[in-house]
Simulated scan of single mutants.
Amino acid sequence: MITFITGGIRSGKSRFAQEMALRLSQAPVYIATARVWDEDFRQRVKRHQDERGPEWTNYEAYTDLSQLPLQNKVVLIDCVTLWLTNFFMDFQNDLEKSLAAFRKEIDNISQLPGTFLIVSNELGMGLHADTEVGRKFTDLQGWANQYVAAKAEEAIFMVSGLPLYIKRQD
C-alpha cells in the first residue's frame, strides 16, 4: 500500500508522515534520499535525524530504494524531491531518463508487500523557476508526483500542518 503525502515547504509533511509511521509500526523504516551538498543542508539532515528515535531503522539510499530489505514493513521515504534530484543529476538533467528511472522504482516498490509512506513537495505552486534547468526540474517533479499519486491508495496534501485527504482508500 502506498500513501502519498505532499505539500509545500514547511507544511508539516515529514512530521505527519513520521507520526503516521509510528502509529502503524513499533519499528518503522526511514529512507533518507538526500545527498548532502553543503553545510546548510547537512544541518537540515541532522535536524531530521535528531527527530527520530531508536525505534527507526534508517537507510540512506539515493536511487535504487526498491533493492533495500523493505518487505512487510512500514516504510517512510523522505522525499521524492531529493530522490528525483539524484536521478536528474545522474542523467545530466535528462527529463525522460530521470522520469523513466523514477517510475521504474515506484513500480518496483508498489509490488512489494508492506506499507509505504512517500513524502514529496509541490514545487509548481510557488514562483516560476528562473532558469531552464529549474523549470525542467519543476516539470519533472510535477510528473513524478502525478505518477505516485495515481499509484497510491491514499493521497494527503499538507497545508499549515494540517492534512487534507485528497484520495482515500475505500
Rank of each mutant, 00 (worst) to 15 (best):
I9P: 00
V148Q: 01
M1K: 00
L112V: 09
L68A: 08
F16S: 04
N86H: 06
Q67D: 12
V36R: 07
W143N: 12
N93Q: 15
L99K: 05
L127F: 13
N121L: 10
K73F: 04
G142L: 07
E105H: 05
H48V: 15
E19L: 14
G8L: 05
A144R: 01
L117M: 06
R23S: 15
A61G: 05
Q169D: 15
G142P: 04
Q92Y: 07
Q146G: 11
C79R: 00
F4E: 02
F88S: 14
K167G: 09
R44E: 02
V133Q: 10
N121A: 12
A150H: 04
E153M: 12
K46P: 01
V75T: 10
E60I: 13
G114W: 06
Q67M: 05
I2K: 02
A21Y: 10
V148E: 07
K104C: 13
S11C: 02
Q111W: 00
E154P: 06
L24Q: 09
S25F: 11
K104S: 15
R35W: 06
Q26D: 15
P28W: 00
M1N: 09
Y59C: 12
E51K: 03
I156M: 06
V45N: 06
I156Q: 03
F87M: 01
Q49R: 15
T85F: 11
V133I: 13
G126L: 08
M89E: 14
Q18S: 15
T33R: 00
P28E: 05
A34W: 11
L22V: 14
S110C: 08
I5N: 03
F116G: 02
Q67S: 14
V36C: 10
K136L: 15
K151G: 07
T138I: 12
Q169K: 10
T138L: 13
L123P: 03
T138G: 11
A61F: 05
L95M: 13
F137T: 04
P113H: 05
P163L: 07
N86L: 09
P113T: 06
R103T: 06
K136Y: 09
V119M: 06
E153R: 09
V159Y: 01
D170Q: 12
A61Y: 01
A152P: 00
A149V: 04
P28M: 03
E132T: 08
N108P: 01
N121K: 05
Y59W: 13
I106A: 01
K167S: 06
I109W: 03
E51P: 00
D78W: 01
H48W: 02
H48N: 10
V80H: 02
S120W: 07
S160L: 11
Q43S: 15
L68E: 07
T85Y: 07
D40C: 11
K13W: 13
F102C: 03
F16A: 05
T63P: 04
L82W: 07
Y147D: 04
V75K: 03
F41Y: 11
K46M: 13
T131P: 08
A21R: 01
R52N: 12
A155R: 03
G124N: 00
A61D: 13
M20F: 12
K13P: 08
F88V: 03
G134P: 10
T33C: 13
R23K: 15
T57Y: 03
T85C: 09
L99Q: 06
Y59A: 13
V45S: 05
E132V: 12
D170R: 11
